[in-house]
């Protein structure tokens, strides 16, 4: 991933922005996580709770819904891929917003790192990489729950994990880029304001067809919608070339997110 993205990011940045050592930030994060593993794993449970509460509870009242190919599927099978996408998003967004903001503004950890040969691109890739691993781990846990509940019905589901990593990468990159523009903890209400409606509307709980046309268009622009559609296709086995659109959407998010995040670190810290 890093080899793919850095040339573009490097062109936007002064020389010496990348020492090729972002994995040392992963090492740092992994070491820190070992000391606080409870906080790390708590994030896994949220989508599982949604699955049980909505899937079992609400699902018993709703009845079957139209699946990706139009044939009916159970409500729990409908929402599970959506929650899988959301778990990848949540892990990535939490880490790349709250945690990054704290390290940037209060702990001044990135200042300490930039005093070494590390450059802003190392820091951005390292932190985004950790956020994507966190999102990926939550997705893996959720996939295991889905598998145990018989909700993975296609061999394509094997691709759901790499897809979750791509989704987490995209959200982590954009999350870190956005965080670099936040000024105080109050601004985090904006993050919630974006994430919460996206979580509710991106066909996580209802098919797109229930919305009026204008809202459908809005939903189709949201990144989580593309993540949910990708996951739903892979876990139910309805795979088509249209999925490449979703992947392309995330590729753009990744490139823009990494480039902006590294550029902003440079502007904020190397002045």
């Amino acid at each position: 991933m890093s080899a793919l993205e850095t040339p573009f990011a490097l062109r936007l940045l002064p020389g010496g922005s990348y020492a090729g050592r972002s994995r040392m930030l992963l090492l740092r994060s992994a070491t820190a996580a070992r000391r606080a593993w409870m906080a790390f794993f708590s994030g896994f449970f949220e989508p599982v709770f949604y699955l049980v509460a909505m899937g079992q509870g609400l699902g018993s009242m709703v009845g079957p819904l139209p699946g990706p190919d139009g044939s009916p599927i159970s409500y729990i099978a409908f929402i599970a891929p959506g929650l899988l996408a959301a778990s990848a998003m949540n892990g990535a967004v939490f880490d790349s917003t709250f945690n990054v903001f704290f390290k940037l503004k209060y702990a001044r950890l990135y200042d300490a790192m930039l005093a070494t040969p590390l450059g802003p691109v190392d820091v951005a890739l390292g932190e985004i990489g950790w956020a994507l691993l966190r999102g990926g781990l939550y997705a893996l846990g959720f996939l295991a729950v889905m598998g145990g509940s018989g909700l993975l019905v296609s061999p394509w589901a094997l691709l759901a994990l790499p897809a979750a990593l791509v989704v987490a990468f995209a959200f982590a990159a954009v999350g870190m880029a956005a965080t670099s523009y936040l000024r105080s903890w109050q601004d985090f209400d904006l993050v919630t304001l974006v994430i919460m409606p996206m979580f509710l509307f991106s066909t996580t709980f209802f098919p797109l067809s229930v919305y009026p046309r204008w809202l459908q268009v809005v939903v189709e622009c949201l990144p989580l919608y593309h993540a949910v559609e990708l996951m739903r296709g892979l876990t139910t086995g309805l795979v088509g070339p249209g999925m490449l659109v979703h992947v392309a959407y995330f590729a753009v998010m990744i490139v823009l997110g990494v480039a902006v995040a590294a550029r902003r670190l440079d502007v904020l810290l190397l002045k």
Binding site: A19, M24, L27, R28, A36, D111, A112
Partner: peptide
């Protein structure tokens, strides 16, 4: 630096070891 920017998520020893790793 003027203000300490030690890594509060790491132990005393890890602060030294991880920082050394940043230097490769």
């Amino acid at each position: 630096p003027q203000l300490d920017n030690l890594d509060a998520e790491l132990s005393v020893r890890q602060n030294l070891e991880i920082y050394g790793r940043y230097f490769g």
